[in-house]
Simulated scan of single mutants.
Amino acid sequence: MGRNKKESFENVLFTIPSIIMVTITIYIPFIMSGFYSLTEWNGISKEPRFIGLENFKTLFSGSSEFVKSLIFTGKYTVLFMIFSNVLAIAVAVALVQKIKTANIMRGMFFIPYIMSMTIVGFIWKFIFSQGFATLFEKTGMEFLNWSWLGERNLAFFAVVFVGVWQSLGFYIVLYIAGLQAVPKDVLEAATVDGATSWKRFFRVTLPLLGPSITTCVFMSLTNAVKVFDIILALTKGGPGGSTYSATLDIYREAFQNNNYGLGSAKSLVFFVIVLVITQVVLKVMNSREVDL
C-alpha cells in the first residue's frame, strides 16, 4: 500500500508541470477569448468595452468577410482531403512493391513535409512567378504562362496544389505502414479464390486499411482547416481577398486591424465549427472500419 501511494504521488507530481503549462497556454487564453468576444477592444486600452453579442451579429452580416473565408476554407479542405488521401494511397501501393529505389523514393516524398510551410510557400511563389515564365520561354506550353497567383480561380488551385505537395509524404508513410500490416494470408486466400489484383485491392486491402484511412482523413481535415502559413507566403489572401482562409482572416482581424473583440468572436465560432465537423467525420470513419 505504501509503495502504491508513493507511485501515485510521483505520477501526480510529474504531471503537475504539464497541467500547469497546458492551463496557461490553452485553457486560460480560451476563457479570455470567450470574454473578449463579448467586448470591443483594440488590445491597447486598459478597459475593454462590453457590447454583448454584437460581435457575433457582425460576423454573419452581409458585409462580413468571415463567411467568405469559411467558404474558402471549406472548399480547400474538401479538395485537400481528397487529393492528399487518394494520391497517398496510390503512391503507397506503388512503393510497397519490390522496387530497388523504393526507400529512396519514400525519402524524396517525405522531404517536403519536414520543410517549413512558410519556406515551401516562398519557394512555390518563386516557381509560379519566375520559374514558370522561364519554362514557358523554352517550351511554349501555354499553361506555364497563366497567372497562377494573380487570378482568383487559379490562385485557389495553386494553394491547394502546394498544400497537397507539401504534406503528401506524411500520409504516404502512414499508408505504407497500414499496407504492410495487412495479413499476407488473407491476400493469399483471396488469390486462391480467383480474385484479380484489382478485386484484392478494393475488396480486401482497402477495407483493411480502415484504421489508416481514418487517421489520415482526420489529420488531413485538421491540417486543412487550420491552413495559414502557405497562404500567407503564397498570396497573402489575394488576389482581391479570394484566398483568405478562416485562420488568416482571424489573424488579420486581431493583429492587423487591432480588433481583438471581433477576432476572438471569429476564433470561437471557428472552433465550434471545427469541433463539430471533426467529431462527425471521426464517428463516420470509425463506423466504416472493418475488424479482421
Rank of each mutant, 00 (worst) to 15 (best):
S242G: 12
R252S: 15
F202E: 08
L70D: 00
I277H: 07
I213H: 06
L275Y: 08
Y244C: 11
A90N: 15
W148D: 06
F202D: 12
S64M: 05
L154G: 03
A158L: 05
N153A: 08
E47S: 10
N258C: 07
F14G: 08
F14N: 09
A246C: 13
G178I: 00
N286K: 10
G178A: 07
I176N: 02
V12H: 14
R152C: 07
V160P: 09
I31V: 15
Y27R: 03
M115L: 14
L232W: 14
L95V: 14
V274R: 09
T23V: 05
M81W: 02
M21S: 14
A133F: 10
F14L: 14
M105S: 14
L232H: 04
R200A: 01
R203N: 14
F161L: 06
G121F: 04
I71C: 06
W41G: 01
P17I: 09
W148M: 03
Q130H: 15
W148N: 06
A158T: 03
L282T: 15
R252N: 15
F50H: 04
D193I: 00
Y260V: 00
P17A: 04
F170W: 13
T101M: 13
E40T: 03
F270Y: 12
L168N: 01
F109K: 02
F126Y: 11
T139V: 02
G263S: 07
K199F: 13
I119M: 10
L187C: 01
N223D: 05
G107T: 01
V67L: 11
E65K: 06
K236T: 05
M219G: 04
E188Q: 01
V227Q: 08
T134Y: 12
G131N: 10
N259S: 10
V93R: 14
F35V: 10
G240S: 04
G261K: 00
K184H: 10
T222I: 04
L149S: 11
V12P: 07
I24V: 15
T278P: 05
N4M: 15
F83N: 11
L95A: 03
L95S: 05
V284L: 13
I71K: 14
S129W: 10
V22S: 13
R288L: 11
L87N: 02
F35W: 15
Y76T: 12
V280L: 15
G74I: 04
V91S: 03
A90V: 12
I119Y: 13
V164W: 02
E65P: 08
F270A: 10
L208R: 01
V182I: 14
E151L: 08
F14S: 05
D249L: 05
T243W: 10
W146H: 09
A155G: 14
R200T: 01
I26A: 08
E65M: 05
I277L: 15
